[in-house]
Every structure is written in structure tokens, then in C-alpha cells.
């Protein structure tokens, strides 16, 4: 087979899904770390970090944004293509399906990847609209810089119970996505071993819980502990 064709085989598609999924997982780790600054009652560090990302990196930020968008789109396009192919492979379904149990890793998460994924995709568009392209409030930091007060936008946003609930639900779904996704990605890359696979499955679960709890924690903290807009 030609190399270019092998990328569109059932195995090649899953290779791209796995790689893009792991890269997105790497991105959300950095994103979560950045969010920690929102727990600081002083708004300057978070706002300065946000300002650094948008203004302090020159054109590199556009390259990074483009790459991230491309990875996200690759993941989504292949997700839809793979899932569609899988649905087409069984035109007549079973009257009854009993999970085999035993060594099977089939779970609610593994069977709902596309639904959770589509929700995450819709969420991502809304998320960019809420914050990146949201209201621009300028303020002066303690050391006299005139920059955007993204901190205020976030606290205002999570002063609303429905915004808070919506974010919490989607982040729960992201946790589910990762609980199957992380180990699955390694298996898709052909990385399987007697010692490695149990490890990466455990790691995947822990990672999913940390990401889920981490991203749920912030809106939860803002709404329930600080009461939102201050």
C-alpha cells in the first residue's frame, strides 16, 4: 500500500485519533495549570498570564493556536469518519446485547465516545465565545499595566448557576472521555505490554479523575465558595 493510503486505513485513522487525542490531553493539562491562577484572590497574576499568552509571544501564539485548532479538527474529523464506518459495519443489530464482562474494557465511556466528543466540540465553541471572544474589560494592575481583566469575566460568568452547572456537566463528560481515551490511545498506537498496559490503564483513570475534578473544581469554587462576581 502507498504510505499516503495507509493513513486512511482503519488502523491509520485510529493512529491519528490516538496521537491527536494525546496531544489534546497534553493541552488540557497546561490549561488546567493556568486555571489554578484563578484561585488566587489577587487577580493580577492570572490576568498577566493571559496577557502574556496573547501579547507576549509575538506571532508564536498564532502558530500555536493554528496547530491546536488543526489537532482538534483532525481528532473530530477522524472521530466522525471512524464512528460512521463502525455504525455502517452492523446494519442489522442484535435484539439483546449482554456485556461479556471478564477482561473486557467496554464501559459507558468507551461506548459513548462520539456523543461525549460532540458535546465537547460544541462546548469548545461556546467556551471560546464566552472567554476568548467575550467581554473585554480593561483595568490597571497594581504595577500600572493597562490590560484585560479576564479574571473578572470568569468570575462574572460563574456567578450564574446555569453557566456553572453546564460547565460542570461537560467537564464530567470530558473525564469519562479520558477514562477510556488515554489507555485506548496507547493501544491504538500499538503500545501494549504485559506490564505497560495495566499501568497505562491505571494512569488513564487517575488522569481522567484529575482532569475532571480539576476542571469541575474551578466553576464549583467560584459559584459555591466565592459567590461569583466580586
Amino acid at each position: 500500500m502507498r504510505f499516503s493510503m495507509s493513513l486512511f486505513s482503519s488502523i491509520g485513522k485510529k493512529l491519528f485519533m490516538g496521537l491527536s487525542g494525546l496531544m489534546l490531553s497534553g493541552f488540557i493539562v497546561v490549561h488546567l495549570l493556568g486555571n489554578l491562577a484563578l484561585l488566587n484572590p489577587d487577580r493580577d497574576p492570572f490576568n498577566k498570564y493571559a496577557h502574556f499568552l496573547t501579547h507576549g509571544l509575538g506571532n508564536a501564539i498564532y502558530v500555536a493556536e493554528f496547530l491546536l485548532a488543526a489537532i482538534f479538527i483532525i481528532h473530530i474529523v477522524y472521530a466522525v469518519a471512524v464512528t460512521w464506518g463502525n455504525w455502517m459495519a452492523r446494519p442489522v443489530g442484535y435484539a439483546k446485547v449482554t456485556n461479556a464482562g471478564g477482561t473486557s474494557r467496554k464501559s459507558i465511556a468507551s461506548t459513548t465516545m462520539i456523543y461525549g466528543g460532540v458535546l465537547i466540540a460544541i462546548f469548545t465553541v461556546m467556551h471560546l465565545y464566552h472567554f476568548k471572544f467575550g467581554e473585554v474589560i480593561m483595568y490597571t494592575t497594581k504595577d500600572g499595566q493597562q490590560i484585560r481583566d479576564l479574571y473578572a469575566v470568569v468570575y462574572q460568568f460563574f456567578g450564574n448557576i446555569w453557566n456553572t452547572v453546564f460547565y460542570i456537566v461537560v467537564m464530567l463528560i470530558l473525564g469519562f472521555h479520558l477514562s477510556h481515551g488515554v489507555w485506548s490511545a496507547f493501544q491504538s498506537l500499538g503500545l501494549n505490554g504485559r506490564r505497560f498496559t495495566p499501568f497505562i490503564q491505571g494512569f488513564g483513570y487517575v488522569f481522567a479523575v484529575i482532569m475532571g475534578v480539576g476542571f469541575i473544581g474551578l466553576p464549583f469554587y467560584i459559584y459555591f465558595l466565592t459567590g461569583g462576581a466580586q
Partner: peptide
Amino acid sequence: GACSNHGECEAVCPKEISITAIARMR
């Protein structure tokens, strides 16, 4: 279809063939 790594195959296989076979194929 493509493999989503559910692992049901391994659990029903009468010869209990492990999905390490799938990783090796990849």
C-alpha cells in the same frame, strides 16, 4: 468496523486470544 479497544472480542474469544494481538498488528 475499526477497533475502538472495547475488548469484548477478547472476553468472548473461545481461545481467549488477547488484544495484544491487535496492538502487534498495528
